[in-house]
């Protein structure tokens, strides 16, 4: 029992330490600007105010940015699934001698700094009228996350015994049926976790979204960029804007953490 109390103490101490920056951000967002810079810092002994949220909303229409974030992150993940499931399927169940090389190549494409290809992409987007469109940014983020998706799905599919698919195939199922009615249901947890991870990554992606969108398709990363340097006393407003930008995906992450982690461990955990 004593041991349990000690462990409880330390586990909570470290968890709270890790969480503290986020908590502090949320607390600060309810302070007035003057309280936000008070020394010694005010932890709870201040008059909470919603003023900052009001100012932030007045300056920029939060809902519009949030809506774009939702569309972009979910859209790119769905499109990503459509593209990556077939390729992961064929690599996992019909490997050739080039499969490993291809996988490696796919992964290395993620390591290039995006700014290196910004101008080419910008020119292509201009020519196809994709600048500042949801479709354009969905396509880009889909491809940005595709390597990770393929990798995760590939590893997950590898855990499914080939015999099950063989059996279906012998029964005369087409490839599409095989994927849709057997593989997808069997690997639903892996698919779910892969798409969750990609939603989180797309939500937080700040280079392409900032450079390829401005108004119509601008997500929360653009929203926060207008608060990223101070104007006079600004810590409370910054905290309010930050809280608004991260809260939706934070909740998504919390509610789905079990799902998220299941596929991330590449099926190593059963």
């Amino acid at each position: 029992m004593k041991k349990k109390i000690i462990i409880t103490f330390f586990a909570w101490l470290f968890s709270l330490l890790i969480f503290f920056p986020i908590l502090w951000m949320i607390i600060t967002s309810f302070k007035t600007e003057i309280d936000a810079v008070a020394i010694p810092p005010l932890f709870f002994s201040f008059e909470p105010t919603l003023e900052n949220y009001g100012i932030v909303q007045e300056r920029s229409n939060y809902l519009k940015f949030a809506q774009n974030s939702v569309i972009i992150s979910f859209g790119s993940s769905i499109l990503g699934l459509v593209l990556s499931i077939p390729i992961a399927w064929s690599m996992a169940f019909h490997p050739t001698k080039r499969t490993k090389g291809t996988l490696l190549w796919i992964l290395s494409t993620k390591m290039m700094p995006p700014v290196g290809v910004l101008i080419p992409i910008y020119l292509i987007f201009r020519d196809f009228s994709l600048l500042d469109t949801q479709l354009g940014i969905v396509i880009v983020l889909c491809f940005v996350n595709l390597p990770i998706m393929i990798w995760l799905l590939y590893s997950y599919f590898k855990e499914i015994p080939n015999e099950i698919l063989e059996a279906v195939r012998i029964d005369g199922a087409s490839t599409l049926q095989e994927i849709l009615y057997v593989l997808v249901p069997l690997s639903l947890p892996g698919i779910a976790s892969t798409s969750l991870l990609c939603i989180v990554l797309a939500w937080n992606e700040a280079f392409w979204t900032l450079n390829l969108t401005s108004i119509d398709a601008a997500p929360l990363t653009t929203f926060i960029a207008s608060y990223s340097s101070p104007e006079g006393l600004f810590y409370a407003k910054l905290s309010a804007a930050s809280t608004l930008s991260v809260l939706p995906v934070l909740f998504l992450g919390w509610f789905t953490q079990k799902q998220l982690v299941r596929g991330l461990t590449f099926g190593a955990v059963k």
Binding site: P21, V200, N204, V246, W254
Partner: peptide, 13 residues
Amino acid sequence: VLAIAPFFIMPTV
């Protein structure tokens, strides 16, 4: 839940 929260925070934020 608290300990894994930072992973979901936007790098900019």
